[in-house]
Design a protein around this nucleic acid. Structure first.
Length: 727
DNA sequence: AGCACGCCGACT
DNA sequence: GTCGGCGTGCTC
């Protein structure tokens, strides 16, 4: 009897045996419908054997083998298995979470309809002018069909959101019909004479990567903002496309996808390109995923979740801004898309490009020891655009008006007079980070988290930025009844108000998560900045990355010091990267830029390195510190996390976990401690750190320990976090 | 994780 | 007399 070992989306570290009878050919990676307990579930066939350790009576038959979508390829299945092993996470959860939502459901998806359309004789005879002038979409659609011959559904959707409706009407009128077979669009290389010339370092980078096109190699593309990393990606991708391959490009944030997407589309207009990120609807995501799986989509651009997209002709992986923390998932399967991209490249035998101006220390280290190859782009691609001058403003002495020093105000005034733009960077949305009672010292705190409630004055509310809890601003102090409540500190909203009264005629725009909540808000705002309809931009993290504003010549950083007191050993690495990144916003065109950073510690080595634009120097300092402290990358870490309604429950579990430690492993176990964010959404959290000198020792230990932990039970939620970034 | 079974408090 | 609280146990 044929036994299928099936991976199911349950938090159990095991596969489940089912029997298969007359379901025809079954392959690893096939989706199956099975009865599990009292319910039905979708699983994925992980192994096929002819025996089971179970009593035959307990083995249920597979109910159905789905034929609506091709099975997961061996290649992608191997990656998922590696990921499950590396992060010690149940295979079923890993595999099922990699599938688009419709493929996880017990109903088969509608078989993909014919994906192409072409004009009929009648349609071809039709003149665009005969359509009503206001039928813009229909005119465009007709035009495009005439030009291209056949259009894919995705192409049609790209014309306009209403174009899919229009094509139905065309079919109803007999102007168009579905195409039975769609020829692969011939790869058309971009015209060489249109391309911007490469700088010598870019040229070298492209040549180096192309020379190793057919085997695994990690390239660290190290270059400051504006040095032209994207152009290097584009040139390498062009070669990949010409050889019939597929390229996977990962970016840290959804907000960066549209920008890169349009740049790629402009360069490769005839190439099928899809994006994958969490803001797509389930249907779009399935469609794009399937296009990649079939090999039709040649460029896949997306956030970390795009890493698990099946791509049969994968020839290149690019991870842009590889240092960015958002490549690490912070719940469930805590994987690093950057690290798994390297693993995928290794399995597929393709080059992997990690791009950054401030590489993660781990990456820098790997390049230093020769595991990765470093390629450096030293200059800004636009020769006239010099590096911005970075200055620190010592606010331990200068007095501040509403958080702004005189020097910064003067600099802002000068830009306004010259008609140039300024950006004030402040990584705190809301009006003020906390509400405080001047009388008794009460501060607004969240009931469910160990965090402070942020003042949102416009909405007259206090909000927890961790759990989303909201309440009205109390009229008087809840503790002492005094009416002397005041917002303490600066947030984006307050800065907006203050700058408004300082510069009444200036056009000020605030760009943060609150002001860009509406779907199209961010692109519209970016457009206004580009069109020079804004004088002063107040921005958070959101604006730090990737946007290139030609008229922007001043970047002010209001308060950068928080990270300097942080208990997190990676805080200064992140601060440096962040400041380097916002600095890159200044003076990207012909106008020279200046960066003013307000700090209490202007002599701190971090700022000293920043002023010199000296990432390598700063990285060396950090590496020396890490080596002395035996921190990553000089050791390997894992965290056992536990959460429960009571802290004591979580700690008790962790102590028990300490007790079941298997012997003879060369690892170092620390005592359980409460997490830095002790309470979150009503749960108390604690963790236990494991360190090992080698990755192998850590992995061997975790495998054995993980098994023991499953036997522990208890009323806590626990999980392993391999290579943790947050404590 | 679900979803059952299983024994103790306030209700039509 | 029942509805329902969430403890613990299992799922091929």
């Amino acid at each position: 009897m044929k036994i299928l070992r099936v991976a199911l989306d349950v938090p159990l570290d095991t596969l489940f045996d089912y029997s298969a009878a007359d379901q025809g050919e079954i392959a690893i990676g096939d989706r199956v419908l099975v009865s599990f307990g009292r319910r039905q579930m979708v699983g994925v066939v992980a192994e096929i054997t002819d025996h089971s350790n179970l009593a035959p009576g307990r083995i249920k038959p597979v109910l159905q083998v789905f034929r609506d979508s091709p099975p997961l390829s061996g290649e992608i299945f191997r990656l998922l298995r590696f990921c499950a092993d590396y992060y010690h996470h149940p295979l079923g959860e890993v595999v099922l979470n990699a599938l688009p939502v419709p493929l996880r459901q017990t109903k088969p998806v509608a078989r993909a309809k014919p994906t192409g359309y072409h004009l009929t004789e009648t349609g071809l005879a039709l003149e665009t002018d005969t359509l009503p002038a206001r039928a813009i979409v229909k005119r465009k659609l007709l035009q495009s069909l005439k030009q291209a011959g056949t259009l894919l559904r995705s192409d049609i959707a790209a014309i306009s959101p209403s174009a899919p409706q229009a094509i139905k009407e065309f079919i109803a009128r007999g102007w168009a019909e579905e195409s039975e077979e769609i020829a692969e669009p011939a790869p058309t290389p971009a015209k060489a004479d249109d391309l911007p010339p490469l700088t010598p370092p870019q040229e070298q980078a492209v040549t180096a990567i192309l020379s190793g096109q057919d085997h695994f190699q990690v390239w660290l593309l190290y270059g400051i903002t504006g040095s032209g990393k994207t152009e290097v990606y584009l040139r390498v991708i062009a070669q990949v496309l010409q050889h019939g391959g597929q390229a996977l490009v990962l970016v840290p944030e959804i907000n960066l996808t549209p920008q890169l997407e349009s740049r790629f589309r402009a360069r490769f207009p005839d190439t099928c390109q899809v994006s994958l990120h969490s803001r797509l609807s389930a249907g779009e995501r399935l469609r794009n995923w399937s296009l990649a799986q079939s090999g039709r989509a040649r460029i896949v651009l997306g956030t970390r979740l795009a890493l698990f997209t099946p791509m049969p002709k994968l020839k290149l992986i690019v991870v842009d801004e590889e240092h960015d923390g958002s490549f690490k998932q912070q719940d469930g399967l805590r994987y690093s898309a950057r690290d798994m991209a390297v693993a995928r490249g290794k399995q597929a035998g393709t080059p992997v490009i990690l791009g950054s101006a401030t590489p993660a220390l781990e990456t820098w280290y790997n390049a230093g020891i020769g595991r990765y190859q470093k390629l450096e782009l030293p200059a800004r691609a636009i020769a006239e655009a010099a590096l911005p001058a970075i200055h620190c403003i010592d606010i331990s002495r200068a007095k501040l008006a509403d958080g702004l020093s005189d020097s910064l105000i003067d600099a802002l005034r000068a830009r306004l007079e010259r008609g140039e733009q300024s950006l004030i960077f402040i990584n705190r949305r809301g009006y003020a980070p906390v509400m405080r009672c001047a009388q008794c010292g009460w501060v607004s705190t969240c009931h469910r988290c160990s965090s402070r409630l942020v003042v949102h004055l416009r909405e007259k509310r206090l909000r927890c930025h961790h759990c989303g809890h909201e309440s009205r601003i109390p009229p008087t102090c809840p503790d002492c009844g005094n009416a002397d409540l005041a917002p303490l500190g600066q947030g984006t909203q307050r800065l907006e108000d203050n700058l408004g009264s300082l510069f009444p005629s200036a056009r000020i725009l605030r760009v943060d998560r609150d002001s860009t909540k509406r779907k199209q808000a961010l692109p519209e705002m970016l457009e206004r900045i580009h069109a020079a309809e804004v004088d002063i931009v107040i921005g958070t993290q959101l604006l730090a990355k990737g946007h290139d504003f030609k008229k922007l010549t001043l970047v002010g950083v209001v308060n950068a010091d928080g990270a300097l007191y942080s208990a997190d050993f990676r805080a200064s690495e992140r601060l440096f990267a962040q400041l380097m990144q916002v600095s890159g916003r200044a003076g990207r065109d012909a106008l020279p830029g200046i960066v003013l950073i307000q700090t209490q510690f202007p002599t701190h080595p971090l700022f000293q390195a920043l002023i010199k634009h000296d990432y390598p120097g700063f990285a060396e300092t950090l590496l020396t510190e890490r080596k002395q402290a035996e921190f990553p990358p000089f050791c390997h870490q894992a965290l056992l996390r536990a959460e429960a309604p009571q802290m004591e429950t979580a700690l008790a579990f962790l102590r028990k976990a300490q007790g079941v430690v298997p012997q003879d492993f060369d690892v170092n176990l620390f005592d359980p401690v409460p997490a830095q964010m002790t309470r979150l959404a009503g749960m108390e959290r604690a963790h236990l750190l494991v360190q090992a000198a080698s990755r192998g020792a850590l992995q061997a230990f975790l495998s054995a320990w993980n098994k023991a932990l499953f036997g522990l039970g208890g009323n806590v939620r626990w999980s392993l976090d391999v290579d943790p970034l947050e404590f």
